[in-house]
């Protein structure tokens, strides 16, 4: 399967996790990994499964590197109805009222432009006991098997 991991980060935690997911999946799939700041929302393609990894900053806002992507999406209003994505969030439950609101916003933005979400949004908590990769690897496996069922292994 063609997998594009796209990350939105402020201090680099989501970038590290995205690279870890890439290494984990590389043996079985064609995987690329890019910063959302370098991605044009008009360039997304139906042949790829998009795994978004995104943190939260400020008061429940998108991290800096996801903001240009979100702005470009709002400006260009691309039709993403052929696009499939899944999303993994990173946040901190110390910010209880806005816990993982960044990835929530990003998912809503994708959905608002017609994209199809696969699986549940899973959230890592920087104040919790788990390592992000211990949540993210099983999440990625599960997403891929769901995607293979829906899109066919040929994707």
């Amino acid at each position: 399967m063609n997998i594009s991991i796209l990350y939105g980060t402020e201090t680099g935690n989501a970038e590290m996790l995205a690279e870890d997911i890439q290494s984990e999946l590389e043996g079985d799939h064609d995987v690329s990994c890019q910063n959302l700041s370098d991605v044009d929302p008009m360039s997304l393609v139906p042949e790829h499964l998009y795994l978004l990894v995104c943190s939260t900053y400020g008061d429940g806002e998108l991290p800096a590197s996801a903001q240009p992507f979100a702005e470009a999406m709002e400006a260009a209003k691309p039709d993403l109805s052929a696009i499939h994505f899944a999303i993994f969030g990173m946040g901190d439950s110390e910010y209880d009222e806005t816990f993982n609101h960044g990835p929530k916003r990003l998912a809503e933005l994708m959905l608002a432009h017609g994209a199809t979400q696969i699986g549940e949004r899973v959230a890592h908590d920087a104040s919790g006991p788990e390592m992000a990769e211990d949540l993210a690897f099983p999440w990625a496996e599960e997403i891929i098997s769901q995607a293979e069922e829906r899109l066919g292994a040929a994707a």
Partner: peptide, 14 residues
């Protein structure tokens, strides 16, 4: 009491 912010040290360890 802001341990989440200190999690960047995992990157630095790498």
């Amino acid at each position: 009491d802001h341990q989440g912010t200190k999690a960047v040290t995992r990157q630095f360890a790498r």
